[in-house]
Design a protein around this nucleic acid. Structure first.
Length: 570
RNA sequence: UUCCCGGUUGUGUAAUUGGUAGCACGCAAGACUCUGGAUCUUGUUGUGGGGGUUCAAGUCCUCCCCGGGAAGCCA
């Protein structure tokens, strides 16, 4: 785990301020203990990363600080082992370690049951035999107070017996629930005798058929926090209205460990969605290839796309923590990704849309192995040899027959530099007789410019990447774009939902790409910079030595594209 | 209509707790460059509104406006 309390600029978000204040007042005997409490009902996404970085980060900033991983598994209807496994590997991949503190709310089911019994004995809870529908009606509305359940006055003895029989499986689902006795006229609906146990004959991923009653979140969560000695229970804004209930249970049960719940605003990102329910819908309806589709904001999707944990952590550190509902521009995520990849990604050459180029004055059978640096940002990454020969491929978009203003690349009569190789000048074009499309270029090279330098100091403005046709390896490349066309995918026509905002061009498959020979053995998961184009990684699922397949992680910033956009605007 | 929470440049987020509104991203212009990448420089109409307290208000008081959340036997 990262330990950067000293060199990191002091973070001053409101949560860390509260904790610093608590420490100053020697609250919690100077302990700082947080937890990350996912429900295993889906895969983790970038929004969870914010919470993970916050909780584990805060713990790591204090000597002796701890952060638990706890699965909030109180609803067996939605939870699965697949999710339990993926969540653990995602948290680890992000770079955090819960050591031996892996917990499950289900670990505490017996203890939670005893707490519930205590509440009943203290006259603070009762068995309600109203139907779900009736309970809703009795609860009242936002503006009307509720009314007491007719079962509210059952005797302690009767409540005790019924609760035990609920556990024993004597009743049907829905026949009874256990409810707290609070206040049916509270302005906070959460306090109108909330349900704390319900009957469910559903097999639980961990406890199997041992239980047929399951505690509700509000009851289980605060008590689990208390049992684990959590000092600061950090959650998202939608739980603000639940905080009085969180405190109510801990106060009524007179628990000495009373964690403080603090709410912060969840992460929203432009051009994507963060709802687990909606992500699940994309998966189930086959609109993406799975939870790890590289277009998904899930950690497994981002990982497969080529995102690094470091970039995600930096992003989470920089976006800040507050209580303001906000949407962060996805460009900021991409910025920290590029910043990270720029330092570490080896440079290679790959031609995505090849245009054949013949160097007319280069000997037929000659091959030169030229030096190419692996990363101008980091000389310790060394260099490699790349083959140069008479027939090459360059990028189609690096040639225009009639170049617009400010176009520095190849066109008839113009000279450019081939990266790491020679200056070449375009002397002829071959066109398809039917379409008129340029299918081959004839160029001459200047032998005096080997390595890309000219002794006479002559300058060329454009530099292109290229591959030797005889040596190139054919590959497929997946170009990814935003999953949604709208900055806010929920911004839809009245009768449509977010699906209607799916970007039809979120995936562009290129099949005839030509990559430099060394890339044949690219290890899946390692990210390269394809010179002048972007960062790409071999796909961890579909790439093989026989059929190399690369995902575009993120494009390079493209100022030529901006110039073009400006030109077309004017 | 009830309760809770929020509102600082285009987007996020700070402001020593009443004392120069800063940082990052984005955008724009320029410099530099064997990646139109990176890097560097410069710029970039901001405290939701009205009153009030004060020498001084993003910060305190007050009224209003706007946004979000809350009526699961979900979390």
């Amino acid at each position: 785990m990262k330990q950067e309390a000293t060199d990191a600029p002091a973070s001053t978000d409101f949560i860390r301020t509260i904790i610093a204040e608590d420490l100053k007042n020697n609250k919690n005997e100077g302990r700082v203990h947080t937890r990350f409490p996912p429900e295993p009902n889906g895969y983790l996404h970038i929004g969870h990363a914010k919470s993970i970085c916050l909780n584990f980060g805060i713990a790591s900033e204090h000597p002796g600080g701890l952060c638990n991983l706890r699965f909030d598994d109180t609803n067996p209807a939605k939870e699965e082992v697949e999710y339990i496994d993926s969540i653990q590997s995602d948290v680890r991949w992000l770079g955090f370690d819960w050591q031996e503190r892996l917990f499950y709310t289900s670990d505490y089911f017996e203890q939670l049951y005893q707490y519930a019994m205590q509440l009943i004995k203290d006259g603070k809870a009762y068995i309600c035999s109203l139907s779900a529908d009736e309970i809703r009606q009795y609860r009242g509305t936002l503006t009307e107070t509720g009314k007491d359940s007719p079962y509210r006055n059952r005797s302690v003895a009767e409540n005790l017996e019924l609760f035990q029989r609920m556990r024993a499986g004597d009743f049907e689902e829905g026949a009874h629930v256990l409810r707290a006795i609070i206040d049916m006229s509270s302005a906070n609906l959460n306090m109108r005798d909330p349900t704390i146990y319900r009957i469910r004959y559903t097999e639980h991923p961990r406890t199997g058929k041992k239980w047929c009653i399951y505690p509700m979140y509000d009851f289980a969560h605060c008590l689990s926090d208390s049992i684990e000695g959590i000092t600061h229970s950090i959650c998202t804004l939608e739980f603000e209205n639940n905080r009085p209930l969180y405190d109510w249970f801990l106060d009524r049960l007179k628990l000495k460990s009373h964690p403080q719940q603090i709410e912060f605003a969840r992460l929203n990102l432009s051009y994507t969605i963060m709802s687990k329910r909606k992500l699940l819908q994309l998966v189930e309806e086959g609109l993406v290839s799975g939870w790890d589709d590289p277009r998904m904001p899930t950690l497994s999707g981002l990982r497969r796309r080529g995102y690094t944990p470091e970039a995600i952590r930096t992003f989470c550190d920089r976006i800040g923590v507050s209580k303001t509902n906000s949407t962060i521009d996805i460009a900021m995520l991409e910025h920290y990704l590029r910043e990270d990849l720029n330092k570490r990604a080896p440079r290679v050459m790959a031609v995505l849309r090849p245009l054949r180029v013949v160097i007319d004055n280069y000997p037929e059978d000659k091959i030169e192995w030229l030096d190419a640096e692996n990363n101008p940002e980091d000389s310790t990454m060394g260099s490699r040899k790349i083959p140069f020969s008479r027939v090459l491929y360059i990028e189609q978009e690096d040639f225009i027959e009639e170049p617009p203003r400010k176009f520095f690349r190849l066109s008839p009569g113009k000279e450019i530099r081939l990266k790491h190789a020679y200056y070449i000048k375009c002397v002829r074009m071959e066109k398809d007789k039917n379409t008129g499309e340029v299918i081959e270029l004839g160029c001459t090279y200047d032998p005096q410019t080997r390595g890309g330098w000219s002794a006479d100091g002559r300058k060329v403005k454009g530099t292109s990447h290229w591959v030797s046709a005889a040596h190139a390896v054919k590959a497929e490349v997946r170009l990814y774009n935003h999953l949604f066309i709208k900055e806010n995918p929920e911004d839809t026509q009245p009768d449509k939902d977010f699906i209607s905002n799916l970007n039809p061009d979120s995936l562009d498959l290129l099949s005839g790409c030509m990559i430099e020979p060394g890339l044949k053995n690219a290890k899946p998961g390692t990210t390269y910079q394809f010179l002048r184009q972007g960062y790409f990684c071999a796909d961890s699922v579909d790439s093989s030595e026989e059929h190399p397949l690369f995902n575009r992680t993120v494009s390079l910033r493209d100022s030529w594209a901006k110039i073009q956009r400006a030109q077309s605007r004017s």
